[in-house]
């Protein structure tokens, strides 16, 4: 059965230029996203994981087209979103939505919940009556388990807890009935004890509304919990891709293995951190001076000559798996 590919990203690049020193020196670029390709099947939850600075959030913003690309294509249902005109783009905005990382800052404190939720309706459906708007707002609040919806309509963001705020933010992104949702670290700023609630809500909503998700996170354990497939990013490129269980438990790329090792378990006395520095050295270099050849090679315990000369390509490796490494594990 050929799955429908709802989103195809091809060689996507986002470079931020900046000049250092005198104006006739060569321009330097912050290579936030340096050639990313992946495909997401309709109905799945695809994860994009990596540490901060790897470019995953930038990919999310590019897919929403709230920032402009430097190169590459993003095809949503076979249409290149960067070629769309204004009205096509408006329609697109109804279909692709985003959940942001910081629930405390994503809702304006001076507005009431009702105003925040009804605004998107006003952008896209200005002919709706007040009653219809109210109905839809209450409906969507109910679906994110904000019950009873009426008591929250006049509240402001500073009166609500983190979990409630994130639910309202989710409600806002659902109110236009999107098909595709980009969730950018939706629980990382919430208390651990309420994360499960939000994640389970996301799963429930996906089923109810027949959606597809791109789940961006730095947390491996949560990503394994929620994602069907995932891609690991490092310094603007994908280093490994495959089913989440396989990628995390049988990694092919040394970086994935390092991330896995650096995951603390609730195991007293294990001292996981003793092993990590033995395996991987140093820190993530800045995105301006990217190492030659494989960008991970200076930190890699297995690197050989070829790794410092040639950049590996993302190739298929086994069942549904891809890796970008000269010497996969």
């Amino acid at each position: 059965m050929i799955k429908d590919k709802i989103l195809i990203v091809k060689e996507l690049k986002k470079l931020y230029p900046f000049t250092r020193g005198l104006f006739w020196s060569k321009p330097l670029y912050v290579k936030a996203v340096d050639g990313i390709s992946f495909e997401i099947n309709k109905g799945e939850i695809f994860g994009l994981i990596g540490e901060s600075g790897c470019g995953k959030t930038t990919v999310g913003k590019l897919i929403l087209r709230i920032i402009d690309k430097t190169e590459g294509e993003v095809l949503f249902k076979k249409q290149d979103i960067f070629r769309m005109k204004k009205d096509e783009l408006r329609e697109l905005r109804q279909k692709i939505q985003m959940i942001f990382q910081n629930p405390y800052e994503v809702l304006e404190p001076r507005l009431t919940t009702f105003k925040i939720l009804s605004e998107p309706l006003e952008f896209h459906f200005p002919t709706l009556s007040d009653r219809e708007k109210m109905e839809r707002v209450k409906e969507v609040l109910f679906s994110v388990d904000i019950k009873p919806p009426e008591s929250f309509l006049l509240k402001h963001s500073f009166e609500l807890s983190g979990g409630q705020l994130q639910r309202i933010a989710i409600a806002r992104s659902l109110i236009l009935n999107p098909e595709f949702l980009v969730a950018d670290e939706p629980v990382s700023m919430l208390d651990t004890s309420i994360r499960a609630g939000i994640l389970k809500l996301l799963l429930k909503l996906k089923k109810e509304n027949d959606m597809t998700y791109l789940f961006i996170s730095h947390d491996l354990a949560i990503s394994k919990f929620i994602c069907d497939r995932l891609a690991v990013m490092y310094l603007g490129k994908v280093v490994e891709e495959g089913p989440s269980g396989k990628v995390l438990n049988e990694p092919l790329h040394p970086y994935t293995k390092a991330l896995r090792m650096a995951l603390p378990l609730l195991d007293p006395g294990r001292k996981y951190y003793l092993n990590v520095p033995k395996y991987i050295r140093g820190e993530i270099p800045n995105a301006i001076n990217i190492p030659q050849g494989c960008r991970f090679h200076p930190r890699c315990p297995y690197s050989e000559t070829i790794c410092s000369r040639e950049e590996p390509k993302l190739i298929e490796f086994g069942q549904n798996r891809k890796v970008s490494c000269h010497l996969p594990l």
């Binding site: 913003k61 929403l64 709230i66 783009l89 408006r90 905005r93 109804q94 939505q97 985003m98 942001f100 990382q101 910081n102 800052e105 994503v106 809702l107 304006e108 605004e119 998107p120 952008f123 896209h124 933010a169 806002r172 992104s173 236009l176």
Partner: peptide, 22 residues
């Protein structure tokens, strides 16, 4: 560059609306 403005962009708000109302 604040998150709430980014969110408005993502929701399809016109720049005129963002500038004047937000």
């Amino acid at each position: 560059e604040r998150p709430f403005i980014e969110a408005l962009k993502a929701l399809g708000s016109r720049p005129k609306n963002i500038i004047f109302n937000h």
